[in-house]
């Protein structure tokens, strides 16, 4: 039987983490989950996607929500919990997949087949990438990167004990500026293969 492989990719905005995750999913021939996770959940439960949009990877506002006996009125927290349950169920069923962000390195920590990676990059490389991809000026790219990373950090740290991007929280933290997206993905494949070899022994 093929061993379960779950790759969790945390990423800074503009680091190419998402592209790296796609390459890993393609290489191992496993499902890639990012914002399409919501589509999957909505399809499985026959839900209206319109209702869930705008809540994905959003932090909970403490002033507009309240918790009573462990129940929260926060739509963001409830969506996080839905995703939590869904990922847990998928992992418990023995499925292999790549999951981008969504606190997955914490949610799936107990699974042996989990490889957690955090992709970061130098600011100048991130600006260059965002300017190129979204046709933005330098100032707007900087603004967008700061805003997105601030929100990702707030989302992660709102629901997880460990801090976003803290090396202790991941198996591997890698700066994609050094080798570029393709070679970084290649290094990660090498690492994952070695991990799988060790665990199979």
């Amino acid at each position: 039987m093929k061993k379960q492989l779950i790759i969790s990719v945390g990423r800074e905005y503009g680091s190419g983490g998402h592209e790296i995750a796609e390459k890993l999913a393609k290489h191992y021939g496993i499902q890639m989950l990012d914002h399409n996770l919501l589509d999957e959940i909505a399809a499985e439960r026959n839900l209206d996607m319109k209702n869930l949009e705008g809540l994905d990877e959003k932090y909970k506002n403490p002033f507009s929500s309240r918790t009573v006996r462990g129940y929260s009125s926060s739509p963001e927290e409830n969506l996080y919990l839905i995703q939590f349950d869904y990922l847990q169920k998928k992992a418990a069923a023995g499925e292999s997949f790549v999951i981008v962000g969504r606190c997955s390195e914490t949610i799936l920590k107990s699974y042996e087949g989990l490889v957690s990676v955090f992709v970061l990059a130098d600011m100048d490389k991130k600006i260059e990438r965002i300017m190129r991809l979204y046709h933005l000026t330098q100032n707007l790219a900087v603004k967008k990167i700061r805003e997105k990373d601030r929100k990702r950090k707030r989302y992660h740290d709102c629901f997880c004990k460990e801090k976003w991007g803290n090396a202790r929280n991941y198996d591997l933290c890698v700066n994609s500026s050094r080798l570029g997206v393709d070679d970084t993905a290649a290094v990660l494949i090498d690492y994952i293969d070695k991990r799988q070899q060790i665990e199979t022994k």
Partner: peptide, 14 residues
Amino acid sequence: NVVGIATASREGYV
């Protein structure tokens, strides 16, 4: 309110 909203939201009816 909190418990009702949470019960519905956890089932996807946010």
